[in-house]
Amino acid sequence: MKNLFIKTERQRFLLEQLAAIAEPIKAEAAEVDEQSRFPFKAHQLLLQVGYPRFTLPKEYGGEGLSVYEMVLVQETLASYDENASLSLGWTLGVVGEIYEKKLWAEELLTAFAQKIKKGALINRAVSEAATGSPTRGGRPGTNAVSTKDGWRLNGRKIFTTASPVLDYFLTSAWIEEQQQIGFFLIHKDAQGLSIEENWEMSAMRGTSSHDLVLQDVVVAKEYLVELPNHPSGGKINGWLLHIPATYLGIAQAARDYALHFANHYQPNSLNAPIGTLPNVQQLLGDIELKLDQARFVLYGVADAYDDPARRALLTNEMAVAKHTVTNIAIDIVDKAMRVVGAKSLQLSNPLQRYYRNGRAGLHNPPMDDMTIIKLATAALEQQK
Rank of each mutant, 00 (worst) to 15 (best):
R338F: 13
H323N: 13
P350Q: 05
G300V: 02
E317D: 11
A336T: 01
K343G: 15
G361H: 13
I328M: 12
Y305N: 01
N349V: 08
R359H: 12
D334G: 03
V320L: 05
V320H: 03
R311M: 04
T324E: 01
D331R: 06
P365G: 08
L347A: 09
P366K: 11
R338E: 15
Y354H: 14
T324G: 00
G300L: 02
V301Q: 09
N327P: 11
D306M: 02
H363L: 14
G300M: 01
A321K: 03
D331S: 08
P365C: 05
L345I: 05
R359E: 06
D303V: 07
I328C: 12
T315L: 06
A304L: 04
I330M: 08
A321C: 02
A312N: 06
P366E: 10
G361S: 03
L345R: 04
A329F: 08
A329W: 09
N357D: 14
V339S: 14
R311H: 04
Q346K: 02
D334E: 09
L362Q: 13
V325T: 02
A309C: 08
P365A: 10
H323W: 14
T326M: 07
D303E: 10
R338A: 14
V325E: 01
L362S: 01
A309V: 15
V333F: 15
P366Y: 12
Y355V: 09
V320G: 02
D334A: 06
S344V: 04
A302G: 06
V325H: 03
A304S: 04
E317H: 04
N357K: 10
Q352G: 06
N327V: 05
